[in-house]
Amino acid sequence: MKYEGNVIKYKDNVDTDVIIPARYLNTSDHAELASHCMEDLDKTFVTRVQKGDIIMAGFNFGCGSSREHAPIAIKASGISLVIAKSFARIFYRNSINIGLAIVECPEAVDGISEGDRVEADMDNGIIRNLTTGKEYKTEPFPEFVQKIIENGGLINSIAEGIIK
């Protein structure tokens, strides 16, 4: 899989309460959740996000509440990939389970700036900064996780009998 987009960058410890505030958890409609994505951290996000854009963040991205509404809101807002220095574990598994691509790469987060154009080649684990020409290596997903993502998430993996 390849992803390409402009980078929107955030700091450490971005929690799921700011990704999608609880006052909007009375719905599970994807488009409605996306319309409030990042609202309590960055009111400009929903107006400037373009399809394919990439979120980059520091350590512990997605900490706090287990609300799957958070990765759903990010995915539905058009974000193709999240690159962080580290992810909170529930957010990490939720993203895999719903088929939102995420990857840990501290070097890329340090080396890439807000607004840079980035291409991520996840088959070969290479993140390229198209603005500066620099490249960063990442770890590929474990095989089990790769299988879930390739099958479009956990639900499809079970529906198709890949996980029993």
Binding site: G64, S65, S66, E68, I90, N97, L154, I155, I163, K164
Partner: peptide, 29 residues
């Protein structure tokens, strides 16, 4: 499907928070 599910570790159980998709699959299989 609530992050504070880790509470039941107090009872000597392995207990952890997950998301709604995990909950759906857990309910199914």
């Amino acid at each position: 499907a609530d992050s504070h599910t880790c509470t039941y570790g107090a009872l000597g159980a392995f207990s952890t928070g997950v998301g709604s998709t995990d909950m759906a699959c857990g309910m199914a299989i």
